[in-house]
Design a binder for these strands. Structure first.
Lengths: 129, 129
DNA sequence: CCCATTCATGCGCATATACGCATATGATGT
DNA sequence: ACATCATATGCGTATATGCGCATGAATGGG
């Protein structure tokens, strides 16, 4: 929101033309917002563990709760968030709700996360000036 | 943390054996925590836009600030977070700091994000029971 | 040396998030 | 109908996060 201050840094001129062709996410704040929300949905250890569990089997809330050692309330609330972003689906059977990953692409993607083990992924190296 | 309540839901028995072979992230809370932190780093629209800009060119803080219309302070703080998770690197030239994406895998991965346009990604379908 | 420029950082505040408690909803059994 | 179980949700609170303000640190020009 802040207006560009009147500094003299003109480095941008170097890449002026390139920057003229801005990518969608750079120009479209709304797009960036939506995208960021989805990363945020994955930005919680408990939710990642829920997804990890669901990548193995379809499970009811009660199972997830017991498996991960978190309260039913917390489990339910996390599942709501994962539902909101279309990451899980569920099926009601009697009074139970069986959750599963929403689609196979999410499943394989999570599988990579599991086995990747800190190498060859999407940005692992630590700072190095 | 909450102890498993003494309900009677025994659905877990169904998948008992499968669940015995838990994936790392499910069992290893620490691992899940680390992984979640990195998603969180991407879970902010401004940081995504910074990465989008850096996927086009190496830029100094001043440029980023002006380009995205955010304060120098905010820019610097976001860059610190991205540095912490090894997503960007920088090079000092005089009083300026030129930032770039840390590695090519992050770059191509971001490129996919840009063009994917809500289809074929990692979990797009909205809730459907 | 003095001062402007560029970037980084400590602090404070407004807002967001995670989770527990209590409770609502809906299904199942007696 | 009533009690019980599985799940969902409103609310309060502790903590985390984003960002502005003020300032520090480093560089370079006069």
């Amino acid at each position: 929101m802040t207006e560009r201050e009147e500094g003299t840094c003109e480095a941008r001129v170097v890449h002026g033309t390139k920057l003229a062709a801005l990518q969608p996410m750079l120009a479209d704040e709304e797009r960036a917002h939506v995208e960021a929300e989805r990363f945020r949905a994955l930005g919680d250890p408990t939710r990642l563990r829920i997804l990890a569990a669901l990548s193995l089997a379809e499970l009811c809330v009660c199972d997830l709760s017991g498996l991960l050692g978190i309260s039913q309330t917390a489990t339910s609330q996390h599942l709501k968030i994962l539902r909101t972003f279309g990451m899980v689906r569920y099926r009601k059977e009697g009074r139970m709700a069986f959750y599963r990953l929403a689609d196979s692409s999410l499943r394989t993607w999570l599988a990579r996360l599991h086995t990747e083990d800190r190498e060859g992924g999407v940005a692992h190296e630590r700072e190095s000036v």
